[in-house]
């Protein structure tokens, strides 16, 4: 039968996730001659991610593009995908999130969150934008660093000696300009849109962590759908996310070129520095999320 889906996500119009969401709606409509349609609620119009999760669980909302941080704060098993140095470049991220090991993480979602995971979308590897000079990981020590407040990131940046400071997204640019923080970590796409280079002295590409997004469906809604529709939706979501992933990874060289043309240096973390950091991180997180060992193994092959 005909159905109108509602999809919610937190990012504003124009973000690559939003383009993917709109494309998903168009593709579904085209594939079913208008039987299945979709309305996209962007910019958190239906509430923040916890509120959207609640609506997904009750069945008020059909689908969501929810960041791994939100799912990871509920399920440590999922948080493993945010762990540092699983992969070390955006092209590897693009391969990694489509690997069966990453898809398999979704198996715990129905039981732990009442939702069904259909696939990952991505943002690029995160970098540190700093108002003091940085060349190596050791320089991060003592920095006041604005981070995405997911527990994995907090542990990671704390282990580097930074003082993680959670600051709400709309205030980040100010906080940096005002010297409330010495630096911030974010993906390059968001950083370019926000022009963080204008309030920084140096960009350090950490090549450590990335923030993927999961395309999830309400468990209640999923149960009510005929098998053929489920199959069609799964297939359409996969192909939409494939496009999003490839485009994002493909755009990264251009973004880096943009930043290289900015008057501040953009540097890479020397690869040798990371072994001790990984060991310290895994000591805490392997017991919470044993799947991390497997993810590291897979990541190393990419």
């Amino acid at each position: 039968q005909a159905k109108e889906f509602r999809l919610g996500l937190i990012t504003p119009n124009g973000h690559s996730w939003n383009k993917a969401a709109l494309k998903l709606g168009d593709d579904l409509k085209a594939a079913t001659n208008g039987r299945l349609t979709m309305t996209v609620f962007h910019s958190g119009q239906l509430g923040n991610e916890p509120a959207m999760m609640q609506q997904l669980q009750s069945g008020a909302l059909d689908m969501g593009f929810i960041q791994a941080a939100e799912l990871g704060s509920r399920v440590p098993h999922i948080a493993a995908i945010n762990a540092p140095y699983i992969v070390r470049s955006t092209p590897s991220v693009a391969k990694f999130v489509r690997h069966p090991a990453a898809i398999k993480l979704f198996e715990v979602l129905p039981q732990e969150t009442g939702t069904i995971g259909l696939g990952w979308g991505i943002t690029g590897m995160r970098a540190i934008f700093s108002s003091k000079d940085l060349t190596t990981l050791a320089d991060i020590k003592g920095m006041k660093l604005r981070i995405n407040p997911t527990p994995v990131y907090r542990d990671f940046y704390s282990s580097l000696g930074a003082a993680p400071t959670p600051i709400p997204t709309p205030q980040v640019f100010d906080a940096m300009a005002n010297g409330q923080v010495d630096g911030l970590e974010a993906d390059l796409e968001f950083s370019w849109n926000q022009r963080f280079d204008k309030v920084s002295k140096v960009i350090l590409q950490m090549n450590a962590v990335f923030m993927p997004m999961a395309a999830i469906v309400s468990g209640r809604v999923w149960q009510s759908l005929p098998a053929a529709d489920r199959e069609l939706i799964t297939k359409t979501v996969k192909s939409t996310l494939d496009t999003q992933i490839d485009e994002l990874a493909g755009n990264e060289p251009k973004l880096i070129e943009n930043f290289k043309n900015a008057p501040i240096p953009i540097r890479q973390v020397p690869a040798g520095d990371t072994e001790a950091v990984i060991a310290e991180f895994d000591k805490v997180w392997l017991p919470k999320a044993p799947v991390l060992a497997e993810l590291r193994k897979v990541g190393a092959t990419l």
């Binding site: 509430g47 923040n48 609640q54 009750s58 008020a60 709400p168 709309p170 205030q171």
Partner: peptide, 21 residues
């Protein structure tokens, strides 16, 4: 005719003021 929204109602009220600004 979507009574399932009642369950989200209190949380939306809460979320409205759950803001740093």
């Amino acid at each position: 005719g979507n009574p399932v929204l009642f369950q989200s109602y209190p949380l939306q009220l809460f979320g409205g003021v759950d803001s740093y600004g």
